[in-house]
Structures are given as C-alpha cells and as structure tokens.
C-alpha cells in the first residue's frame, strides 16, 4: 500500500513543522497549509491529496467552515479534525459534516498514523468502488 498524501492545516507554524517532519519520516507525503483559505487553494491545485489534518480553531476561515467547503467540493477527501479545544459540540458538528474522525492535541503519533492510514484506506476504497461502478456501467452498456 502506498503511503497516504496528507495536507496539514494549522495556524501554529511550529506545530505543523514538527508534525510534518515526523509524518514524512513515517513515509507520508506531506503538504502544509497555515490557514483555511491556504488549504482550499492547495486542494484546488492538487487533486492527489487524500487526507486533510484540520485544526478547528484558526483565525480567518475556521476549521468547521473549511471542513464544510472541502466536503462540498471534494467529497472523497477524508478530513481528520485536530484540536486543542475538545468540545463535544464541535466534535459532533464535525462528524455530522462528514469528518472522518476527531483527535485532541497533543495526540500520540501512533494513533495519528493509524487514523491517517484508515482514512486514506477508506478514500481509496471509495474511489475504487466508484471506478468499479463506472466500469460496470460501461460494460453493461456494451453488453
């Protein structure tokens, strides 16, 4: 299995830097964004991003808003919410809006890695199913 392509979104630059180094060392392909609008721009440019690690509390467009837009424009991209502000309400809202999971900062790297893997696996599975469905449609038409 190829390692996942991950976009990390957080307003705390040192946090992104440390985390991306650690994830890169674990063979993930990492892109960094320092705000919600940054993240949306990158997602627009690059179609290959599979998982987004998204901070909830950010200046400008906050995590929830960013999540909404991502899920609207790129429904197959999986989002893992990552926050220091562990309110149940935001967690529930995030899950309702289609986030893959919800993690509290600071989190164990092992847990994060496994969640990212799960998320990318799900994304790939969804993609595969869509491709299969298309192929089926095409073959059926041919038959």
């Amino acid at each position: 299995m190829n390692s996942a392509i991950v976009l990390i979104v957080d307003d705390e630059i040192p946090f992104i830097q440390a985390l991306s180094k650690r994830l890169k060392k674990r063979e993930f392909s990492i892109t960094e964004a320092f705000s919600g609008s940054d993240a949306l721009r990158i997602l627009n440019e690059r179609q290959d991003i599979e998982v987004v690690l998204l901070d909830v509390k950010m200046p400008g467009i906050d995590g929830i808003e960013t999540l909404q837009t991502i899920k609207q424009k790129y429904p197959l991209v999986e989002v893992i919410m990552l926050t220091g502000h562990g309110t149940i309400e935001t967690a529930i809202e995030g899950m309702k809006l289609g986030a893959f999971d919800y993690l509290l900062k600071p989190c164990e790297i092992e847990i994060l890695v496994s969640k990212v893997n799960e998320a990318s696996a799900r994304k790939r599975m969804h993609e595969k199913k869509i491709i299969e469905a298309r192929i089926n449609r095409i073959t059926k038409k041919r038959v």
Partner: peptide, 16 residues
C-alpha cells in the same frame, strides 16, 4: 486553550 497549543508543539518536537 492558550497553553494547549504550546504544549502540543513541545510534545511534537519531543516526538521528533
């Protein structure tokens, strides 16, 4: 909340 972010960075750096 203010403390949580620096702590998270410290923990990540230590992890690194």
């Amino acid at each position: 909340h203010e403390i949580n972010n620096p702590v998270a960075i410290m923990v990540e750096e230590a992890g690194w």
